[in-house]
Design a protein around this nucleic acid. Sequence first.
DNA 1: CCAATAGTGTCTATTAGACAGTATGAA
DNA 2: TTCATACTGTCTAATAGACACTATTGG
Lengths: 268, 268
Amino acid sequence: MTEEDFLAAYDPRAYPPVAVTVDVVAFTIRDGRLHLLLVRRAAPPYAGHWALPGGFVHPDEDLPTGAGRELAEETGVQAGGLGRVHLEQLGTYGTPGRDPRMRVVSVAYLAFAPDLPDPAAGSDADEAAWVAVDSLGLPDAAALPGRPVRQRPGTTRKLAFDHARIVADGLDRARSKLEYTPLATRFVGPEFTIAELRAVYETVWGDTLHAGNFHRKVLSVPGFLESVGATTDRGGARGGPRARLYRAGDARLLHPALLRPSREEAVR
Amino acid sequence: MTEEDFLAAYDPRAYPPVAVTVDVVAFTIRDGRLHLLLVRRAAPPYAGHWALPGGFVHPDEDLPTGAGRELAEETGVQAGGLGRVHLEQLGTYGTPGRDPRMRVVSVAYLAFAPDLPDPAAGSDADEAAWVAVDSLGLPDAAALPGRPVRQRPGTTRKLAFDHARIVADGLDRARSKLEYTPLATRFVGPEFTIAELRAVYETVWGDTLHAGNFHRKVLSVPGFLESVGATTDRGGARGGPRARLYRAGDARLLHPALLRPSREEAVR
DNA sequence: CCAATAGTGTCTATTAGACAGTATGAA
DNA sequence: TTCATACTGTCTAATAGACACTATTGG
């Protein structure tokens, strides 16, 4: 069935036009809050709204390459400098009418980045910024039962197109990925303390974790953490022992996994 | 960044042509072996090779609708009759050159189906068939350590395009989905015994499970199974008690999950 | 009767989570 | 000296997996 059509379509311009874009849901953590990379749209539709960074996939460009390129352009990082950034495909969104101009199929990618500097004004980015996720009025299926949502007045904006749904899907994926992969380490620097790692989990999951049990648990997962053999230079802000430093180990999956507390309600 | 290009591209025919197709990795279980729905290609490239069912996404057609349509066309089931079939997006494949004729971005879907009748010769399917997965020489990352791979001579075929990779990804996803979702029930009829359910897990995972422990475990997961209150009419082929019948419960996630035995090796 | 299977009981090693306790070091 | 914090010890409930056992039924 499939390929007769293909031959008939050897001149592809005879077919209804479809545009393929790549969008990136890039998360980072700043000041203990989850942030998302967004760009402000200059032209209609949705002029003035925030949108995910993205654009047409270039000819002869692989999809993940295009996602990395878009991310690099908007963050100001040079394209090769995404070494510590995790990038994976999230999903593809192609409902007719999601872009009012034409049929657009968007391949969304999910990125986990350490705290990067703000995009420089001189860079390619017209207006790109890291925006706190809890400042967007997201239809957050997995609402945070612990912390109250701190909505900052004046910063609420509805995302363009169906990007709110894409972000919600990315957030779900991110929360679940922290459970069974070591990707939480992508949100911190190359060397980190267990308290910093715990802060990542608490921020993404929106829940508080028991410090002592978390400590023992992450150390018990084989291949998750690797000791650096050094400690922080100073203790905490108000005292305390110096914490040991770790880097990410060689595990690609956590076994056993670090399960979120009390998922029973979300099961049905 | 993204949307200036969009405006410039208001005439999409000015842009390099990209075709968007939908491909389906549909699994079912026949005679205790995992089967995959494939179609035989009539025209080059890859004439005579097996390929995944798929084709262009229609104008004004949603992506999952297109996947369901392709699946219905090739299985001979009418499009509305996919009620018990599970369909989810698997991933999108767009590497340049994956189709030698033009740039093709394929959105792959994963389907779990009960044992359906063979596509009737009179149907739309030119040549569609359910093919045993272990008869294809797949680059199976998660090779089955338990059972030997029963390669049937004369049936080995290399799949067209990058479809072998798509199938391998689908197989990985299927194995993992059985762990934390109740989707194993989609491979059996609406009422089934626990032994039939266990056979699904053993077939997809390629491992044998302890009957007694499996029995107790699936019954202990809340919302997984719901008792019908009846038993099979007969015992086993060579005797044995009649088994109780169950249907799928209302859980959408299994908690706690049914983990595959001995995943430690696959972690790194 | 025999053999295979459904379903249950029991034991053990492991784990999650609650909680307490000790040591450290900046203010 | 104070006090938040890093890290460790201990107890308990829950769970996974090994294994045994009984009951049922077709051949």
